[in-house]
């Protein structure tokens, strides 16, 4: 297997190169870092739901949807990426996801330990140090290959991370910021300083080769690889690709008789998924049940909200919910009356 020690690369190559390598049917370990910041969302994520696109546009922060799973992240040059591209049939690859993570995360864990950070594996796919997460990881299966990506976090811009996320209000943003501060650490926070980059790259290379065996080192992107990355860039840097995954606003309706319908809908608001089942007679809600994984305070008011919606015309749902919120002092971080209206009336 080859070790591609690329150092700093243009931001889009920090994503496109690992997507390109398996398409060329080549294994390799890529070590690189982006020259400029960007936002990267998971394969199944909806950019409009997850990211404050207006802010990103205004500040020239590109947004990229990767084939790897997981959530939206703010990436920049203070993060050192490792990207392992390995054949599924390689004897080093266990078939179980957990075993896979456990085996290959040993490399970054050992790198962290070598600089004095007490990193540990936390199932299924995390590295923690002093009870805080200290690496982001994810996997994509591409053709006959498994691609495993992750980072050593030298420093992290918590403010920018919460700024680029789409949140309903500043209160929610503060909460996300605090949660991130409490749960995500960095090399700089753990050690009080940043070791030289070359030392960190060297440690990653050394610890991975202890698992993967000796690797021939390359420092350049060869023409075939660059051509494939550029070809993929035509697709993956397009708006069409970015917005391919729309949030699940699924609607299923069963007409009971003319004018009477039972509708079921799911809508993913920033604060969580809303599911609604309702009976509609001649455009008026006759019965409704709302559930999902969002927060709603006080919780017992949700049943009252359902009752308040009975007898309401579908197109007046948002107005009625907004009034209910104001009168009852309801809070639902990340879920607005408008989100309910979409979930209920589409």
């Amino acid at each position: 297997m080859k070790l591609y020690r690329l150092g700093t690369v243009p931001w889009h190559y920090s994503q496109l190169l690992y997507h390109a390598l398996p398409r060329l049917k080549r294994e390799g370990l890529i070590l690189c870092s982006p020259a400029s910041p960007y936002v990267c969302i998971g394969y199944f994520q909806d950019a409009e739901q997850e990211v404050d696109l207006a802010y990103c546009r205004e500040h020239d922060i590109p947004v990229f949807r990767r084939e790897v799973g997981g959530g939206a992240v703010y990436l920049d040059g203070d993060q050192l990426f490792w990207q392992l591209v390995i054949r599924k049939g390689n004897p080093l690859v266990p078939a179980s996801r957990e075993e896979f993570y456990r085996r290959f995360l040993q490399a970054p864990i050992a790198a962290y330990r070598a600089i004095g950070i007490p990193a540990q594996y936390k199932p299924i796919n995390d590295i923690i140090a002093n009870n805080r997460k200290i690496s982001g990881t994810g996997v994509a299966e591409i053709g006959d290959f498994v691609v495993f990506v992750g980072n050593l976090i030298v420093d992290f811009n918590y403010e920018m991370m919460v700024r680029v996320l789409k949140v309903p209000d500043e209160k929610f943003r503060d909460k996300v910021y605090k949660t991130l501060q409490d749960n995500l650490s960095t090399i700089k926070r753990e050690l009080g300083y940043s070791p030289p980059r070359d030392e960190l790259w060297g440690l990653l290379a050394e610890k991975f080769s202890e698992i993967l065996g000796p690797m021939e080192e390359e420092t350049r992107i060869d023409p075939d690889w660059k051509a494939e990355a550029d070809r993929l860039g035509e697709i993956m840097l397009s708006e069409e690709w970015l917005f391919l995954r729309r949030s699940p606003k699924i609607e299923r309706g069963v007409t009971i008789r003319a004018g009477v319908e039972v509708r079921q809908k799911a809508y993913k608001a920033p604060g969580g998924l809303i599911r609604a089942t309702m009976e509609v007679k001649e455009g008026v809600i006759a019965d409704v049940s709302i559930s999902g994984d969002f927060f709603f305070y006080p919780a017992d008011r949700l049943a009252e909200l359902e009752r308040a919606l009975v007898g309401v015309r579908v197109e007046e749902v948002e107005e009625v919910i907004a009034r209910f919120y104001a009168e009852q002092g309801v809070e639902s971080p990340g879920v607005t009356p408008a989100d309910f209206a979409i979930a209920l009336s589409g």
Partner: peptide, 14 residues
């Protein structure tokens, strides 16, 4: 041949 994707544990599998 793979034809659909599922995600678990940040792993997009086919």
């Amino acid at each position: 041949q793979t034809f659909m994707s599922i995600e678990s544990g940040k792993w997009v599998g086919r």
